[in-house]
């Protein structure tokens, strides 16, 4: 069971969290003209790397904050967790 450090609550067990997928996907701005390709890339395309993966988790049974986790998809090692507005 993963041990995830919520940036607000500290280390907690995985069963308090919900997974939120690829955190490198960036939603196109509202009201901005985007090409079909850009939009499809946002909605459907995922890099799904083998190794370091930046992803969202949601402390759903805790503070209910979304945050970013950098995790290895092979070893499941967690390198760091970040608030959504933090880059490192």
């Amino acid at each position: 069971m993963l041990h995830i450090k919520c940036p607000h609550c500290g280390l907690r067990s995985q069963n308090e969290f919900a997974y939120g997928g690829d955190a490198t996907v960036k939603r196109p701005e509202l009201n901005k003209e985007v090409s079909d390709k850009e939009w499809d890339t946002f909605v459907y395309l995922r890099k799904s790397p083998r190794g370091k993966h930046l992803e969202f988790w949601h402390h759903i049974s805790g503070c209910r904050q979304w945050f970013k986790v950098e995790r290895d998809t092979v070893t499941h090692e967690i390198f760091k967790t970040l608030k959504p507005n933090e880059d490192n």
Binding site: A18, R27, F56, H58, I60, R64, Q65, W66, P84, N85
Partner: peptide
């Protein structure tokens, strides 16, 4: 609820 929180916290903070 999770959907709303996602947009408020991540997309449109």
């Amino acid at each position: 609820l999770s959907h709303l929180e996602y947009y408020l916290q991540i997309v449109w903070p």
